[in-house]
Amino acid sequence: MELTRRNMLTMGSAALAAYGLGALPAFASLTDDEIAKITGGAETAAGELTITAPEIAENGNTVPISISAPGAVMVAIFAEGNPVPNVATFNFGPLNPTRSASTRIRLATTQNVVAIAKMEDGSFQRASAEVKVTIGGCGG
């Protein structure tokens, strides 16, 4: 391959991407451990569960998120990039028709927020959303 500037950049990006992928499981393991505690290792598939979060958060201190999980009895939220991944666990009672909720959470850095739902039939669903947490210009 001819070493042009463009090729060099491509190679650089590929190397970075490879590094990123290599590093991911180490970061994700805390979250995976916590998820395994809930599911007992059972499979988590995509389903009706959705998680809604801003693409870009102006401040990681207060990030609005919503979850919706028709047919779920419980939804647990995890932040993969936080020092402690656990965020909250919502248990829905008989008077809750929509199995949805909104709250505001702390995110230490740009990361995936993961939701795990336990359904009425005992199966599990998973959904995630990436939130970019910006570093402000003026700390105040």
């Binding site: 401040n59 201190n61 207060t62 402000g136 003026c138 700390g139 105040g140």
Partner: peptide
């Protein structure tokens, strides 16, 4: 201010800037 999670005075903001 979300950063401090409390009410911020005018002078506090001036000082920060």
């Amino acid at each position: 201010r979300l950063k401090q999670a409390k009410l911020i005075s005018r002078h506090n903001r001036f000082r920060g800037c």
